[in-house]
Amino acid sequence: MLELDDVHVAYGGLKALAGVSVKVGAGDFVSIIGPNGAGKTTLFKCISGIVAPVQGTIRFDGQDLTKVPAADRPHLGIAHVPEGRQVFPNLSVLENLEMGAWTYAGRRDWTDNLEYILGLFPVLASRRDQLAGTLSGGEQQMVAIGRGLASSPRLLMLDEPSMGLAPTIVDSIFERIVEIRRDKKLTVLLVEQRAVEALQSCDRGYVLETGRVVLEGGHEELLSDDRVRKAYLGI
């Protein structure tokens, strides 16, 4: 479904990605783990079109994404739940979700999607008219994920959904992600620093370090890999 081949990105003279190739098949749950500054967020921004690659190709369902303007990509079925949540602080919770439904598919499925999102995160129902900027971090993460779902995506990209959240909330967010994938038969691409949670829920994973894929494999394979165990799982 999504195929990145030899993608290079540079900020000025600084190489953020140096030839990254990632494949995500339809229905897959793929995790990308790696330390801070490895280029995980850059990779996502590249897929969303905020950052343009200097070299390499990105294909979504066979279509060359680099030729599609950033604002048109969500309409193809790509939902990006950005790092740091990035909700619209001065819009209400409901309005945030409505903006998620800006895509053609999201508009069509709005009623069903809203019901599903509020069922998934009941706390949002009681806060629907509250400004999103006044919510707690965990609630904002729920809004951000809900906003992504409201676009009726086929590919859901989650950038560090655990960032800055308490451990119990992180657990419940990960449970919800697994639940969403099961209910909606979504393809999920997850970027995480929390390697344990990310690798446990995924089918396949990539380890990204300083702009390169240093390791890839199935979830069993990565969990039992010595380097991964030492560097990321602390075993």
């Binding site: 969303s48 950033a70 309409h75 409505e98 800006w102 895509t103």
Partner: peptide
């Protein structure tokens, strides 16, 4: 209106607005 809300969204966070498919 939907369009009006999209203007506010683009004002609030242009990058996130692009992720929603709003042409900022």
């Amino acid at each position: 209106s939907r369009l009006g809300k999209s203007l506010r969204a683009a004002a609030d966070n242009p990058e996130a607005a692009i992720y929603m498919g709003i042409d900022v």
